[in-house]
């Protein structure tokens, strides 16, 4: 394992029951500071991979190394979990305490951090996700997006090297999704935290540094968003979406246009189209 790779799986296989492999011979390395999106439809095995990164599950074959620790080593369990924080899909079912700040403190209390330091780190984490004013609220009164930011604050407070988010926006409305995505991007930019985002929304994967597409327990595409989303046909076949503009370009190119297949944003698309359409006019 090179010093750069903080998560590294080698020929990793996983199955709940014999004969039904959910993950097949996976070799994925994730570099420090990288923002990686794992894209796949339900049942593709992407959430299972997430659970292997912090030793909730251990490989049935092959190995998973996190910060040089083998996740099968039970003695390292808490070191691993402290370094790989995890945020889940349902915002309601991961908040433990009846007061926001108490919940953010939960992980720190578990690991025996001194009270004064907990206070400091909780306040900092709440400010980072923009929820400091809500510190003495009951989580029940908050929106889904706010609850999810509280869950992220609870992880930030533990100062992990890496955060794995398992479909954190699947149950949120557009406004909540935007807030959470902004918070996720901030994790990398401000704190240098390595982010692994599990999602089936391509518009979220587009914002990552690297996209890995998983289908039937195997990575089938791996690269920058531009590289990955230009494979419109493969993505559509696995039941995933591509950005509308990428799809438009792909379809127009079938009619003999010569547009850049790596177009991802509406601005790029509008500029390319404007050029062609004005040409056509002349």
């Amino acid at each position: 394992m090179s010093a750069e790779n903080i998560i590294s799986s080698k020929n990793l296989c996983f199955s709940y029951e014999q004969g039904k492999e959910i993950l097949k011979e996976i070799n994925i390395d994730i570099k420090r500071g990288e923002f990686t999106a794992l894209l796949g439809h339900n049942g593709s095995g992407k959430s299972t991979f997430a659970r292997l990164t912090n030793a909730i599950l251990v490989p049935t074959k092959g190995s998973m190394n996190v910060f040089g620790m083998d996740t099968s080593d039970e003695g390292k369990l808490y070191d691993i979990r402290q370094n790989v924080g995890m945020v889940f899909q349902n915002p309601d079912n991961q908040i433990v305490a009846a007061v926001v700040e108490e919940d953010v403190a939960f992980g720190l209390e578990n690991t025996g951090v001194p009270p004064a330091e907990i206070r400091e780190r909780v306040d900092e984490a709440l400010k980072a996700v923009g929820m400091y004013e809500y510190r003495d609220h009951s989580p029940g009164m908050l929106s889904g997006g706010q609850k999810q930011r509280i869950a992220i604050a609870g992880i930030i407070a533990m100062r992990p090297e890496c955060i794995v988010l398992d479909e954190p926006t699947a149950m949120l409305d557009p406004a909540g999704r935007k807030d959470v995505m902004r918070t996720i991007r901030m994790l990398g930019e401000r704190y240098g935290i390595t982010v692994v985002l599990i999602t089936h929304y391509m518009d979220e994967a587009v914002r990552a540094d690297r996209v890995i597409v998983i289908d039937e327990g195997k990575p089938i595409l791996d690269g920058t968003p531009k590289q990955v989303f230009s494979h419109v046909d493969i993505l559509k076949k696995t039941g995933l979406d591509v950005p509308q503009v990428t799809e438009l370009v792909h379809k127009l190119n079938r009619y003999g246009f010569d547009l850049d297949p790596q177009i991802l944003t509406e601005e790029e698309c509008a500029a390319a189209l404007a050029f062609v359409l004005k040409e056509g006019k002349s």
Partner: peptide, 22 residues
Amino acid sequence: TVDHAVKMILEYLAEKGGDSGC
């Protein structure tokens, strides 16, 4: 919608009398 977009762009170019843009 994407399909409608494709149709509109093709019609636009046809009306302007250009070829299909390549």
